[in-house]
Write a protein that binds this DNA or RNA. Structure first.
Lengths: 276, 276
DNA sequence: CGTGGGGTTGATTGACCTCAACCCCCGTGG
DNA sequence: CCACGGGGGTTGAGGTCAATCAACCCCACG
């Protein structure tokens, strides 16, 4: 067996709790009336690596945003099968999206960091085929999904940007596929941590000190397609080599170059990235 | 080792031959001056499942297309690292895209069938990070990549369509990731063949008789992340169960429902699909 | 008539899974 | 107050799925 089916039924049961209500752990997703962050002064926009926007584009984005949402760690932001899902941008925090097989085997597909769109598939095609969960306390910008066609009509540059973001996601998934299909456990783990590190760097989460990635070994296992036991042993080896350090429920990356070399991964192309 | 590194160096060497020239086996990619298929009478467009287009959209698409290209089996249509890559739509035939690690391990990322865009990532972001190869003799519509922004500007509906296609690709990659990460060899093989079958059905390649998928067991192995030996044994088991039949260098799907049940795969959502 | 691609098969090896403990920590409630 | 349970992490022993190695067949092709 390829494993991945939660060690006990505890976690699956927990998941069911998530779904059973309205598909959203409401007690953990707090809608904030009004906004705290005006798009024009969005701290993300100021970061290097993001492209600059014309005034009218910014104005539209600002009107496109209806408010903010705060989600606690573990909150389900979107769930598989929901028909009319929302469209968000992650403003701060970490999240991930995943799919599960009927018997509980879970596969994490990708991670979201500040600036990433959440729910685009659902907004464009109609139905969500994956779920999204917050890895840390997160703030989301909420958009009016039904104005997407207006966005494409009146702001072609922004329409292009959304395609750009979709193409970028596709590229990340390509890398993940290569990893799952053709890398060893050790290489996969090294790739994943280097990948998350680079993404965090690109949105300024690293600064001078090292980065702490807020994931558990269960997340790593479900991303790499490994059992949790083997994941533990693999991470331990990476730690012994001085590449990472594992803390309570987070991972500190110590030597990114070493990780990238081990995985023979080149890194993502950077810069010129849009922000809706 | 997760394997995948061609059994000998023969295949890697062969690949090098592909790249060494101009990144394209020119003798196998024949540019056809002028077009044979006017967009307005494109046989694909007539198929159910494709959305209908306004006259002015069709007119633009027609002018966006500069000609056709014929590629023989094995021809490299696009190659990794190329900076100014082309944008195509596959008009007929099969193709696949893939990545390779430095030591030759190859991972097939997805397959292209008639109606699929080829080279979108490269056209949007700039650089290709994967290669594309024809699985059968294929005909491609060639587009003027540098008029993409004009497309978004003057035909927002088409811009939305391109995003739609990107989101659809993303969804397929999600499914592949789930497969590689969490399904057994048997389930993976069943999923892949059911997937290819369904895609072929959706573009009318099946009609009344059964479908023959033009792939070798090496392709299956490189898609599923398995060794070729184990792939052979797995396909043999599927054949013994009466789900498929393996022919010389193609696979006949006999019982799609059986394959889908084995992989517990629901199928892709259908219909309303655009065609650029 | 050799060579190379595609496919097939058995024997052996090994990477990774499963099972089963056990630790620490923290929140809950008797 | 302490017992209990659950999440996260760790470790060893044994089992299995899939990789590797090594043949061999068929056929097209030069």
């Amino acid at each position: 067996m390829t494993c991945g089916e939660r060690t006990g039924l505890g976690r699956v049961g927990l998941s069911n709790v998530f779904y059973s209500a309205s598909g959203c752990r409401l007690n953990l997703v707090l809608p904030t009336s009004g906004r705290r962050v005006p798009c024009e002064q969005c701290p993300l926009r100021a970061m290097p690596g993001f492209r600059s926007f014309a005034a009218n584009e910014l104005q539209f984005i600002s009107s496109f945003k209806t408010g903010e949402l705060v989600a606690e760690t573990g909150a389900t932001l979107l769930s598989e099968g929901a028909h009319s899902s929302h469209l968000y941008t992650l403003l701060s925090g970490w999240a991930f999206r995943y799919k599960v097989l009927a018997d509980g085997r879970r596969q994490i597909l990708n991670y979201m960091l500040p600036g990433d769109l959440i729910g685009l598939q659902g907004s464009i095609i109609g139905e969500m085929e994956h779920s999204v969960e917050a890895l840390s306390t997160s703030v989301l910008c909420v958009f009016q999904r039904d104005r997407l066609s207006e966005l494409f009509r009146n702001h072609p540059g922004l329409g292009f940007d959304i395609t750009w973001l979709a193409a970028r996601e596709e590229r990340m998934l390509d890398d993940h596929l290569l990893s799952l299909g053709r890398r060893t456990a050790m290489e996969r783990a090294a790739y994943l941590l280097a990948f998350l590190h680079q993404r965090a760097v690109s949105v300024g989460l690293v600064s001078d000190k090292n980065l702490f990635i807020p994931i558990t070994q269960q997340h790593v296992a479900d991303t790499l397609g490994l059992s949790i036991v083997h994941t533990n042993k693999t991470l331990r080896k990476l730690a012994e080599r001085g590449l990472i350090q594992w803390l309570d429920r987070s991972c500190e990356v110590i030597d990114v170059q070493g990780l990238m070399a081990l995985a023979e991964w080149e890194g993502l192309p950077e810069g010129g990235r849009p922000l809706i």
